[in-house]
């Protein structure tokens, strides 16, 4: 089974090679880094680390970068596609367990959940995630323990069906709506996460969270 790892990255020059090396050590060869219009050397660092690097000329958002990576993977014959954060907060160790349900053809989508096992997660992240889960439930009817997770696996068929139209962080919730609408099966599998000072600075802050929530609600009304 050909597995592609898709890493959306924006100004992650300092750390993107860490994620790529971790994946390489675990035997993953097809790694695609989508540089989402970074102003630093993310593209060059990703290539240097041995990943296939694709560049958006302008910053479109993590949702758009993820869809570009998925399209690339599909075009190059991927059977399973893993989305992975560039900031090294996830461990490539977890991927095997995440891919298993896809390999056994039991599920179409696997969500890596940070909240199924007890681990140290900053309070603010827990709160944002709860709000994200609630909004996701409102728009999709699916309650996930980690709707904003960056680590997910899609079977080829699921990746073909799911179309990400939301550009920024709201794409995470959109995926659940797509799962529901296209009647795909999904499961949550626990994953480890490590928060460093760097990763805490990245991701969603309160203003982003509000914007994401607002866009989700308006988009749902306008559909």
């Amino acid at each position: 089974m050909k597995t592609f790892i898709v890493i959306p990255a924006y100004n992650e020059a300092k750390i993107v090679s860490c994620a790529v090396h971790d994946l390489k050590i675990h035997g993953y060869r097809d790694i695609v880094v989508v540089d989402d219009g970074s102003s630093d050397k993310t593209f060059e660092e990703a290539e240097r680390a041995g990943a296939v690097a694709i560049k958006h000329v302008i910053n479109c958002g993590v949702g758009a970068a993820t869809q570009t990576g998925i399209d690339f993977a599909l075009k190059n014959g991927a059977d399973a596609i893993v989305t992975f954060d560039a900031d090294c907060q996830h461990s490539a160790d977890d991927i095997e367990g995440l891919i298993e349900p896809i390999l056994k053809r039991k599920y179409d989508v696997v969500i890596g959940s940070r909240f199924l096992n007890k681990q140290k997660i900053p309070f603010s992240r827990r709160v944002f995630n709860k709000i994200g889960n609630f909004l996701t439930y409102l728009i999709s009817g699916i309650y996930s323990t980690d709707s904003q997770s960056g680590i997910k696996v899609f079977s080829r068929e699921a990746a073909k069906k799911i179309r990400i139209t939301a550009n920024r962080f709201e794409y995470c919730s959109e995926i659940f709506r797509e799962i529901k609408e296209t009647r795909l099966s999904f499961i949550e599998v626990p994953v480890k996460v490590s928060y460093t000072a760097y990763t805490k600075l990245k991701g969603q802050n309160f203003a982003h969270g509000l914007e994401t929530g607002f866009k989700l609600i308006v988009r749902s009304l306008m559909r």
Partner: peptide, 17 residues
């Protein structure tokens, strides 16, 4: 408009690769 620009950017990225 944002979506159109994104589609264009994404297509350009894949084509240029």
């Amino acid at each position: 408009i944002d979506k159109k620009i994104t589609d264009l950017t994404r297509k350009a990225a894949l084509d240029s690769h």
